[in-house]
Design a protein around this nucleic acid. Sequence first.
DNA 1: CGTAATTTTCACAAATCCGTCACGAAACTC
DNA 2: GAGTTTCGTGACGGATTTGTGAAAATTACG
Lengths: 226, 226
Amino acid sequence: MSRILIVDDEVSIRAVVREYAEFEEYEVDEAENGMEAVEKCRANDYDMIIMDVMMPKLDGYSASKEIRRHKNIPIIMLSARGEEYDKLFGFEIGVDDYVVKPFSPKELMARVKAVLKRGRTENASSRERLKFEGLEIDLAGREVYVNGQKASMTPKEYDLLFYLVRNINLAMTRDKLLEAVWGYDFFGDDRTVDTHIKMLRNSLGEYRKFIVTLRGMGYKFEADAH
Amino acid sequence: MSRILIVDDEVSIRAVVREYAEFEEYEVDEAENGMEAVEKCRANDYDMIIMDVMMPKLDGYSASKEIRRHKNIPIIMLSARGEEYDKLFGFEIGVDDYVVKPFSPKELMARVKAVLKRGRTENASSRERLKFEGLEIDLAGREVYVNGQKASMTPKEYDLLFYLVRNINLAMTRDKLLEAVWGYDFFGDDRTVDTHIKMLRNSLGEYRKFIVTLRGMGYKFEADAH
DNA sequence: CGTAATTTTCACAAATCCGTCACGAAACTC
DNA sequence: GAGTTTCGTGACGGATTTGTGAAAATTACG
């Protein structure tokens, strides 16, 4: 679920926004001013920031600018009426949306949803591509390359490999793998995992070495020195 | 340059928006109501629509929905204060932004710019023709050429192809395709996608090879080495 | 209102994958 | 090093998934 940071110097506003946001099942954190927001963003990962423009210590614009230097988080600005010039300026530093005070919490939530949705589809192209020596894994494209050559795999092989890689260097029991890759409603044989590990290893060719057997336990994807 | 269609029943509003839009060097066309907007969109290509919600004959929501069935044009809605319920609904049918009346023309223009910019980066250049070997795709003109010859396709085939191409090399599940191409309110069979993929492949002739089946997953448009 | 075009569903064939089993190899225990 | 447990693997029948043609339903448009 998405985590949201609410930045405003007024407690009452933070409280209202928090209430609505938690109703929508967002995880909420608060900051009292721009300075605190910058610090919190350095320490934590948020999916979105809702920030007032006028605040003591560090205003919303400056805080946004500072945060954006390190992280590309969507930001919705709250501002008082009649700050038109500021609005335009806001769009230029890349604020994702504006809501004018006094705002309706429902409207704010609709915009939060829209911006989060927008971000999600855009980020789908920020393709994660993992590389271990000559083994390349394209999660978004659902493809695996062995020494530059596409390795064709069955769905279960992909799922299994992706799960192991997502939990890199972590020991995975057969039960855990069955639950995660096959689903909680699979009631078959433990050893089914073995068979698929076998096939996955064959598909990986020389990079089968990354799939390590943990006797009496299960398997893991190990990417350390070999 | 971008072409904008302004849809509002009040002459004065159309005039104001036209003035500002032409100052920004957009090409402007007008429609008096939703019905006229739908017709004009069928006949011409616009890069964006600015549309009032309340209009005689056909309201903004219904018009948007109708237009979106055939063309994926960004839409900014204008609405009077206090139509909160409608707003939420509006975001769900995929309106790109909202501006509340009475609006400031400057703000409206800033949003137009933002939405157009967003669209351009998403479309990876909206006016450009994409070329994959002998397969040419004209996103703006909504046309596809196979070895220089225009390929006639049904609207759904276009939509499906365009969506796959916009998400090139990305694995797409049937559900994702249904939601994106058919709309969130489609409650039919998954396999409908398969049938349209079949027809799309036939239309693409030898370039059917770009449409790759991802067993157990869905499909993708793959433009890598073959 | 009627015809044509498009979309959707359905059924069946073809392709592919999955889960189980059996047996031998490897590893661990004592 | 014999016994025991665990793992690797090939094979096979059944289960899933996909491709496709055709019928049915819906929609577009004169």
